[in-house]
Amino acid sequence: MATDINKGDTNDWTAGIIAIGAALVLGAAAPIGIYFGLYMPQTKQLEMWTLNAQANEIKLHAEQEKEGRMQKMQGESDRVRGEIEKVEARFSAADENLIHQIEGIAQRHKVELPQDKRNFKDVMLVKNMESPTFMPQKLRAEKIYIECSATYNDFGRFMAELENLPNATLIPGNFVAAGNSGAGKTHTFRVEFFVVQKRDLGSIGINVPK
């Protein structure tokens, strides 16, 4: 009888230990399962996106540096444009104002422009619109033609003043000074000038042909 009772004790412990063991196994399985099933893939994803973000950030920084260089270039271009504007303050169009200015200078230096051709709208000063002169970088000049009679010294002063106008740049082209028989010290002068024009600074560098 006592043996039966002891046997019953042993069976109880065995079942209990098995239950405890099962609880241990099953209980450990849950966190381990979560760890390997959810946590580990998540860390891999995190690693992948971290690398992705780093790569994208590097690419973005490279582009931002390029943007910085571009802004620097734009700043330099604007600075050069300002310098060009200063230099080209001396350039002008061969317009009616310039022609009147030339006529005034001629009058002051006793340089006689032919009476019948004195009007700008006629042909005293031929503004050659058909063949504007281009420099390689599109610097334009218009040609004007002056025919006049004066003494050599007066014409020299007239030329000097024209070549040193503060508001226009006149570059002489073909020039002829011929004696005028029967006119004493007066000679006939024919000279053409290139009137250098201001650039359209806004169009510089736009639609540059490749």
Partner: peptide, 10 residues
């Protein structure tokens, strides 16, 4: 292009 053209123009 603009910078190059500005420089050439200058």
């Amino acid at each position: 292009d603009r910078k190059k053209a500005m420089k050439l123009a200058w």
